[in-house]
Amino acid sequence: MKPRTSLPAVFLAPPLVILAVLAFVPTAYAIYISFRNRELSRPDGSFVGLANYIDLFSDRRFINAVGVSLTWEVITVTLTLLVAIVLGILLFEFASMRQRAVLTLVFLVPVILPRVSAAFVWKFAFHPLYGIITYPYKMITGQPLDVLSSPATALMTVALVDVWQWGLFFAVIVLKLLETLPPQPFEAARLDHARRWEIYAYVALPMLKAPLISLTFIKMIESLRAFDLIYVMTRGGPGIATETLDMYAFSQGFIESGRISYASSMAVLMMLATTVIFTVIWKRVKP
């Protein structure tokens, strides 16, 4: 038995108080200013009730941003998991131990890069005139290819960078997860003449269902942080084709009109939606 000690209280109280203050004060303040009409140029403002929220629902740019954000979530989460599972299985199946060690390090490079760097590196690679990726297209057709300026391809191109960062990283995790599995079920399946892909589809992946769901959950949260990539690569453009919710809130609060209260009401809605959705998912996933 442990003796009674002051340690837990001493060790836990200060950090938890700090976290609580740093998290709750901004949250409460966001809710408070979202009920006012404060602007950057006019510090006081007055109480306007739900006016900001009501305005949001007739704001077509807001509706567009909701759509872009949802599309972004679905595309990046799905593709990341797909890339991770395929590459993770290939690593497990075909790479020797030494190759795995080297490839693990290599696959970690994209996710460790600052997103500003990743965004710039790819933005330059996709440059219509000097980009190395668009070069073959330009050489064959004689036309420059400008994927970031076309509403049809811009979001997909930015999403590619996100999947490049996270898909390769998650592939390493899928490999580590496969390495933790006991070998017996694999051997049993092999004895039953299961094909290679059948072993993964019906034996290995179902055994990893819980961690894979956790990975999906983590990626859903991280995909909310799309801002850096979009800010550097397209600034929400062309037009509003890649304007996610955080991008729109940022431009309302800072660039265009300094409507802090209006931007706050968006932030509060985002906070509500993500907290509710993720808490529900988390409680379901973790028994």
Binding site: T27, A30, A267, F278
Partner: peptide
């Protein structure tokens, strides 16, 4: 609960924290 609270801070969209904090630091 403490662990969940710590994790749930990650759910907060950065923009939702940054806007009010900007106002608070300004004030």
């Amino acid at each position: 609960d403490i662990q969940f609270f710590v994790l749930s801070l990650r759910f907060l969209p950065p923009v939702a924290v940054a806007i009010p904090l900007m106002v608070i630091w300004l004030d």
